[in-house]
């Protein structure tokens, strides 16, 4: 764990335990930052979904690959960054889970949920991994509209 005054980061294994661990950390920090119960749930679920993608789809549970998780308070934002060391997500293959033909699919809802729960979701794939940035405006600040940039 590395910590600065406003930022804390972790390097984690590509395991199921990491997913629960990331969710728990998000819950604790979001609560400490003063988010309400519903917002804490939204943040923790978004972090869980992002970590699932990193562990499962990015690193494919590889023991040689790590997940980096960082929480940062910057101005009016709570910023969570999740990086994996996988081959890079193909953004063109992200389905719309609300499309009638996808409603009964058993997967493909993680990014949709993140976008539903967070104010900003940025996904930056590269050949050496995918970086996911989740931003929630701190309570009392203007959301400025939901935006999902890629």
């Amino acid at each position: 764990m590395a910590m600065t005054e406003q930022r804390v980061s972790y390097t984690l294994d590509s395991s199921l335990e990491t997913i629960d661990n990331a969710e728990q950390k998000a819950t604790i920090i979001a609560t400490e930052l003063g988010f309400g119960e519903d917002e804490v749930m939204q943040i923790s679920m978004a972090v869980r979904e992002g970590t699932v993608n990193a562990v499962l789809h990015g690193n494919a549970y590889s023991p040689d690959k790590k997940v980096t998780l960082a929480f940062e308070r910057t101005g009016n934002d709570f910023v969570i960054t999740i990086r994996d060391q996988g081959p890079g997500m193909d953004l063109s293959k992200i389905p719309n889970p609300l499309a009638p033909e996808n409603l009964l699919k058993t997967s493909g809802r993680g990014i949709f949920l993140m976008r539903s729960f967070m104010d900003v979701v940025e996904i930056r794939p590269s050949k050496t991994g995918t970086e996911l940035k989740l931003i929630k405006h701190v309570h009392g600040t203007s959301a400025g509209g939901k935006e999902a940039s890629q």
Partner: peptide, 14 residues
């Protein structure tokens, strides 16, 4: 319930 759990509900249904 997370997205995997939602997927499992869908799977059980289908």
């Amino acid at each position: 319930i997370d997205s995997s759990g939602i997927g499992e509900l869908v799977s059980a249904f289908t």
